[in-house]
Nucleic acid binder design. Structure first.
Lengths: 130, 130
DNA sequence: GTAAGTGCAAACGGTTTGCAGCCTC
DNA sequence: GAGGCTGCAAACCGTTTGCACTTAC
């Protein structure tokens, strides 16, 4: 059996720590580069594997940039959406009961079931505007 | 000079025709395979280049699948969102004045300007449910 | 001791690009 | 006939995988 539980390794620890310190979305490559820069000998595949594990566990959020590259960020566990600065990547978590209800209603009105939705708002934050 | 206007070629024509006939999102690879199947000798890069041109002109919509592959579909010119069937790819265009206003308000409330948003609703359509 | 985790290098898959010839205007 | 367009093949780049070694438990 042994349903593949998750071990604690120092690589996983430093990934989680760094993600927690950054309040923004970063790519796997960027994360890897930052860790190497900081002296770690961690491999790129280890970064990807841990990000996949953390995502599956619901500990981090993924969004896709327009070019298809994935960006990761540690997040709060409950359902939410993001307000993202296109310049610095800073993120504000927002809730949207209004949109939840609306998407549910409109889907059902068209005969759709098993509904999920994605909502992302991107703009320029106050700091980056000036 | 010659600001690169767009010529009409038979490759571009068949791409536009096929996209118009399909009421759903398809990948570039899928489109290419379908055209080859239909007897065309069109190249994959031609498909990509034409899709890029059409996108820039605003004639087709792009969305990114979860794995990062891009999907394309001919669309109406005005701003709208999509209700997408995850099984067959059928798409319903929807408008969402409510969400437009909401996203604008919440962004400004957090000091963000120059706001854009993405909203996609995916589910299972009536035909695919049965 | 066992099996999950790691690092490396090679493979993968979608997309982009360089180039020689073709075709629209 | 000039310059955009095409098809092919090779390059690109983010991501995944095979494998032998290490390490948490």
């Amino acid at each position: 059996m042994s349903e593949g539980f998750t071990r604690s390794t120092k690589q996983r620890t430093i990934i989680i720590d760094l993600l927690a310190r950054l309040n923004r979305f970063v790519s796997a490559q960027e994360l890897h580069a930052a860790l190497r820069q900081a002296g770690s000998t961690i491999g790129l595949s280890t970064v990807y594997r841990n990000l996949a594990t953390l995502t599956k566990a619901g500990d981090i959020d993924i969004i896709l940039r327009e070019d298809g590259e994935a960006l990761y960020r540690s997040c709060s566990p409950q359902h939410h959406h993001h307000l993202l600065c296109k310049s610095c990547g800073t993120t504000v978590e927002i809730t949207a009961e209004l949109v939840e209800a609306w998407s549910h209603d409109i889907a059902h009105a068209h005969g759709f079931s098993d509904v999920q939705h994605t909502v992302e708002i991107v703009g320029l934050c106050r700091a980056c505007r000036s």
